[in-house]
Design a protein around this nucleic acid. Structure first.
Length: 1182
RNA sequence: GCGCAUAUGGCGGAAUUGGCAGACGCGCUACUUUGAGGUGGUAGUGGGGUAACCUGUGCAGGUUCAAGUCCUGCUAUGCGCACCA
């Protein structure tokens, strides 16, 4: 091994042990005693006290996604997110927050069970071994977790509460009137099940003979059970034979299991389901209240799949049957030329004629036998058969045939469709194949477009009373007509299905459910009493399913059969159950009476410190859209910009506000108006300002009547809004106690507008929430530079303040957890409707860049073919495979190594150096064991130390981006830490230390005492240039941490160190402050140098972890003279040095007389001079 | 097919309000320290040109005194969804 840059191998374990022993990172709950001497207590004057919520500093809950402790251990992707959260946790601690930063294990899972099936080893043993390996690896990276709060879902004291929450769900129903979950006891029975009358009149004629009273109770029970949020269903489920279990919709991708990629088939089975669909609307609407990435929100929206349309009844003549269909295009009703039922539809057997019975039956069997995979893969070819039956088109009385086809899904809508082949791609394909009539009912706006297969909006034709109406109007008109005639109604449908919640596995939470026979001998489910929780899984010696296909738990008959005669449920819960609520257990892990105490829940999850404000809802919009629309509207030359109708408060938003505070804002215009109008005015120089339409929530007049309407201290005048330098404006308006705050701010990706609706609790003056949603507003930092270094710049947020993890959980964990949280919220167990306020997705880390050259398969290695001759290049079995464009031969990519690897880039592509006409493929792949490109963090730590790994993970690029690993890059940050080290440590002492280390048989950290401080460090006043370097660094690091731009923060520290290296003297206070900046990123080396720095100068080192974060002094950063560029006709010609505050005329004069500028002005006429003070001068000549 | 995102040196990436493109790191080149160097230090490094200078942010247009940044249209890559009526 090469010489170490510094003795990280001794430093890192030393400080990790110290933090462990001191419990440095313990987060204190309200009411918990803070031990004497704990640095948190010392910082906040709470030593020896048991502070209540109000006495504790503000909370900051920063969470990593729950890892599954796999046998493979960590790879470098894990520590990326963990490092980011750890840096922020340490930063927030230094800022004075009470930081909750926990870690634990989502430890139920298939691999341990599969290993148990194979070897008979209990999955708990495998799980515990894996957990201890993960713990060792994570601890070796020095993360500041509060390990006293570690949880594992497999711990009975944990899953006791998972089972308890399941019972809460089981004992609830969804009240559509209140739009929330309520205890099952509030469920009202329909009239026929009410009272004592055992024979309701409605049913009297259907029911033969008088029914005994127990029958009523049984029917009530059936009704009750059908309304529970956890219910039993017999519907077809996703059965994965390979895994031997059923799967939720979310776990099936392209007809294959998400885990393992095995085929999945539909199979009817009795299963537990959770009624997540009841929450679809709220899961959708509340996305607007949380700060997640747009792409993630979009994924959830897509998964929920809300679509508005109408349900329409179609009569089958001469029968008692009718078919109900769902359509999003009721305007195309006149074009419905046939109908299709899904093969499983209940009416199929009723309506099929004798002649077609045989064919229909055969088709049903064919469809049932096809797996989802086959159905999607063969989607190109439509199949189906005619039933022989006809229906009447509701709008025009036409007789249309009824078919069955498996392109219609039983589980979506009503399982039946009206087919409009002219304007639906699938119907068009089907009709073409089976020669069904195609009638045009929509005229495309562009007449040159073929109407056949045109699925966009246009104008209705051949459609009776809606002819000539644009699609939107046509929909409204015909829906109203249908409702009036009682033939249909407006309906909203969701793609989201109920959550299939049981698994045929051993290694999961047993259901707290038993089955008992009722008087009629039917099995009925019943909750296990709370006091018998947790229900533990039985001990087995064989973990396979039983021979007759029952789950493994059924093997333990003595466990299944209770003395009472009841039997236990033998399914177990899916892995997602435990991760649905783990963030709540962290709040109060040791609590044996509740999943977390109310006080702890309110302190960590609530937002009580919002100065009397509760955020009701937040909407984020991109004004770009608004601008486009505005400009487009302008292009047609007719409409003024402010009449554009795009910015009403959306229906969902309005509904949400109505629900929360009873205020109807559905007629309000969105704040986008302000922006769009402002923009349009500026662009076109139109004035004065006037709104031409009413019902605008925040109107131009409102802004002008500022004194009356805007009494908020943060409000700015309309002029300020216009001012080019004003990047952010805040407008508030109060209506019936609700404060509407419109904020515009700059995000990383562009202009972002945030509308916050606050419900006010206290006086108007309390409503000061200047800090932005994401804590990143540049404007805030500029205007309140000194403030931004402490807590006041951070807006209090409800729920988890920051959650970091990969996108792989976008529709699984994140949807399920939101659902459970809403149930708990409705039932009053938690105080926020959403669990995770801000969520950031870390990007994938790919393996190192690899080069491939193609050769015909079988003829490797000679005869490389340039890659532009290869088409359809795909990754396959660890390499690249394609087809030769000319010969059609299969071409295989060979990974280049050794000197073959020498490539050069010409233009867009890479070519071999030795055979320069051969173009090669360059790609980074996802790390995988199969490719052998996995980087093991243990090795990186061994060679470069944990601090280097942490630093490199952050230095690679923005957290959210996908980026390739490059081990050379680790060396770069490692060298940086070496330079930091030598900035502080005397070189001669270092040599002595190294000699001592090689001669000592078992070196310990005591050897570190040989090291002495670099003589350049002394307790003296810093020179102005030194202070400036430091404060520039403080500013940059602080701002970048607020914006989670770790890469640029690190480069700012590198700049500082590069400069400090040139100094003859290194003043102690300055160097001390620098270590505080470095500490969140590289905590071990910072601690070591911090302690050495203090001991050398005879001081007792205060806790680095809890030392207040340094503030920068803007006055130190002011330059008296600056260099500004001068260009002529936009081309840079010279730089001039001028006083910072030089005015325009001074600048212009200096620019005109600049040495290199003069020649360009000679003999030319100066047409215009643009001077931007402090920035640049541009001289326009002709 | 639909939706979203991204595109800057040999590589990872900076450039936060339209105002000096390429910060910082890797790599490369030269010098230097050293008995030695897979160490440290110094200097250089977008491309072309001896130079003045020219040119340059995926491609083609546009707006502007000024565009990596704004607009329009392409192309490529990545991600998500995919018979959802």
């Amino acid at each position: 091994m090469s010489r170490r840059q510094y003795p990280f191998h001794l430093i890192e374990p030393k400080w990790q042990a110290k933090w462990d022993a001191e419990q440095t990172f313990r987060a204190f709950n309200p009411g918990q005693p803070v031990p004497d001497g704990h640095p948190f207590g010392i910082r906040h004057s709470l030593a020896g006290k048991s502070p209540a919520s109000a006495e504790l500093p503000r909370k900051f809950y920063i969470l990593d996604m729950f890892p599954y402790p796999s046998g493979a251990g960590l790879h470098v992707g894990h520590p990326e997110g963990y490092t980011a959260t750890d840096i922020l946790a340490r930063y927030r601690r230094a800022q004075g927050f009470n930081v909750l930063h926990p870690m634990g294990w989502d430890s139920f899972g298939l691999p341990a069970e599969q290993y148990a099936v194979k070897t008979g080893q209990h999955p708990r043993k495998t799980t515990e071994e894996n957990i201890s390996n993960f713990t060792r690896q994570i601890k070796s990276l020095g993360f500041s977790y509060d390990w006293s709060r570690e949880v594992a879902t497999t711990d009975p004291e944990y899953f006791r509460w998972t089972q308890w929450i399941f019972l809460q769900i089981y004992n609830s129903w969804f009240n559509l009137e209140t739009n929330r979950a309520e205890p099952i006891s509030t469920l009202k029975y329909p009239t026929e099940l009410q009272g004592k009358d055992p024979l309701p009149r409605v049913q009297a004629d259907q029911q033969a003979g008088p029914a005994p009273a127990p029958n009523l109770e049984a029917r009530r029970r059936a009704y009750r059970d059908s309304k529970r949020l956890a219910f039993v269903s017999e519907a077809p489920v996703n059965w994965c034979p390979e895994l031997g279990t059923v799967l939720a919709n979310e776990e099936v991708i392209d007809g294959k299991s998400e885990v393992g990629g095995f085929p999945v088939v539909r199979k009817p089975m009795r299963q537990w389901m959770l009624r997540i669909t009841a929450f679809a609307e709220r899961l959708l609407a509340d996305l607007d209240t949380i700060d997640w990435s747009d792409s993630l929100k979009e994924m959830q929206r897509n998964w929920i799949g809300r679509s508005e349309g109408a349900e329409v009844e179609f009569q089958i003549p001469n029968s008692k049957f009718q078919i109900r269909v769902f359509t999003t295009r009721p305007d195309t009703l006149f074009g419905a030329t046939y109908m299709v039922l899904s093969p499983e539809h209940a009416l199929v057997k009723e309506i099929t004629t004798k002649e077609h019975a045989e064919a229909v039956k055969r088709y049903q069997q064919f469809a049932a036998g096809r797996s989802d995979l086959e159905r999607t893969e063969l989607a190109k070819e439509k199949t189906g058969v005619f039933t022989g039956a006809y229906a009447t088109n509701t709008v025009n009385g036409e007789k249309i045939p009824i078919w069955i086809a498996d392109y219609v899904l039983a589980s979506y809508g009503t399982g039946a469709i009206m087919a409009v082949p002219a304007h639906d791609t699938r119907d068009f394909e089907f009709a073409t194949k089976f020669n069904l009539p195609i009638i045009q009912v929509v005229q495309p706006p562009d007449p040159s477009i073929d109407w056949q297969g045109f699925t966009d909006e246009g104008t209705s034709v051949n459609s009776g009373f809606i002819d000539g109406l644009p699609t939107a109007e046509a929909k409204k008109t015909i829906t109203a007509w249908l409702e009036e005639k009682g033939l249909g109604k407006k309906t909203i449908n969701y793609k989201l299905r109920d959550w299939l919640f049981s698994r045929q596995r051993y290694w999961g939470e047993p259901f707290p459910i038993v089955w008992k026979r009722d008087a009629a001998g039917n099995l009925q489910h019943e909750a296990v009493p709370e006091k018998s929780l947790p229900v533990l899984p039985p001990v087995l010696d064989d973990y396979k399913p039983t021979a007759d296909g029952q789950p493994p738990l059924a093997r333990a008959q003595e466990w299944v059969q209770l003395k009472s005669g009841a039997v236990r449920e033998t399914n177990t819960m899916p892995q997602w159950a435990g991760s649905c609520w783990y963030y709540l257990r962290y709040l109060d892990t040791a609590n044996g009476r509740r999943f977390a105490s109310r006080e702890a829940e309110r302190y960590w999850m609530g937002s009580e410190r919002t100065a009397g404000m509760v955020p009701l809802i937040q909407a984020v919009e991109w004004p770009k859209i608004a601008r486009n629309l505005t400009e487009r509207a302008f292009d047609d030359g007719k409409r003024p910009p402010f009449a554009v109708e795009f910015s009403r408060v959306s229906d969902d938003l309005a509904a949400r506000i109505r629900q929360l505070c009873g205020e109807d804002v559905s007629d309000f215009r969105h704040s986008l108006d302000v922006y769009a109008v402002r923009h349009a005015f500026r662009e076109h120089g139109i004035g004065p300002l006037e709104a031409t339409r009413g019902n605008i929530a925040i109107t131009i007049e409102d802004i002008e009547r500022l004194p009356e309407i805007l009494e908020h201290p943060d409000s700015v005048s309309f002029d300020d809004v216009h001012k080019p330098g004003c990047k952010r404006f805040v407008i508030t308006k109060r209506i019936n106690g609700i404060i509407f705050v419109v904020e515009e701010e700059k995000s990383r990706r562009g202009q972002l507008q945030v509308v916050t609706f606050w419900k006010k609790k206290a006086t108007a003056r309390d409503v000061t929430t200047r800090a932005p949603l994401s804590n990143t507003s540049e404007n805030d930092r500029r205007s309140e530079a000194t403030k931004s270094t402490d807590q006041s710049a951070v807006k209090p947020t409800p729920g988890v303040d920051l959650y970091v993890g990969g996108t792989e959980h976008a529709v699984l964990h994140l949807l399920y957890a939101r659902f459970w949280h809403k149930v708990l919220y409705d039932l009053g167990h938690v105080s926020t409707p959403e669990p995770f306020f801000k969520l950031v997705n870390q990007g994938l880390i790919l393996g190192e860049l690899e080069f491939f050259a193609f050769a015909p398969s079988g003829r490797l290695p000679e005869g490389f073919v340039s890659s532009e001759l290869v088409k359809d290049i795909k990754e396959q079995a660890g390499t690249l495979v394609g087809t030769h464009k000319a010969t059609g031969e299969t071409m295989v990519g060979r990974k280049l190594s050794g000197h073959e690897k020498d490539v050069e880039k010409r233009g867009e592509h890479f070519y071999l150096k030795l055979q320069s006409q051969i173009r090669v493929e360059a790609r980074s792949f996802k790390m995988s064991k199969a490719r052998g490109n996995v980087v093991n963090p243990d090795e990186v730590v061994r060679e470069f130390g944990a601090d280097s790994l942490r630093l490199y993970e952050m230095f690679m690029g923005p957290l959210q981006d996908t980026k390739p690993w490059n081990t050379n890059g680790v060396e770069g940050v490692y060298r940086f830490l070496g330079r930091v080290w030598r900035l502080f440590i005397d070189e001669k002492a270092e040599t002595a230390f190294e000699q001592a280390e090689t001669t000592t048989p078992a070196p310990t950290d005591e050897l570190l005492d040989i090291l002495v401080l670099n003589g350049a460090i002394s307790d003296m006043a810093a020179a102005p240039a030194q202070l400036k370097a430091l404060h520039a660094c403080i500013k940059k690091v602080t701002e970048d941490l607020d914006g989670m731009r770790f890469n640029t923060a690190i480069s700012a520290m590198m700049v500082f160190v590069n400069e400090a290296n040139t100094w003859q003297t290194r003043p102690l206070p300055l160097m001390r402050t620098f270590l505080q900046l470095l500490a969140p990123f590289a905590p071990h080396v910072a601690e070591e140098l911090w302690s050495r720095l203090h001991s050398t100068f005879g001081q007792v080192a205060p806790s680095l972890i809890y030392a207040p974060w340094p503030k920068f002094d803007p006055s130190l950063l002011v330059e008296s003279e600056i260099e500004i560029p001068v260009s002529v006709n936009g081309k840079l010609r010279d730089l001039i040095r001028v006083a910072t505050d030089a005015d325009s005329s001074t600048l212009e004069a200096a620019a005109r007389s600049a040495e290199k500028v003069k020649p360009y002005l000679e003999g030319k006429t100066v047409k215009k001079v643009i001077v931007v003070p402090r920035k640049m001068v541009n001289i326009v000549v002709t």
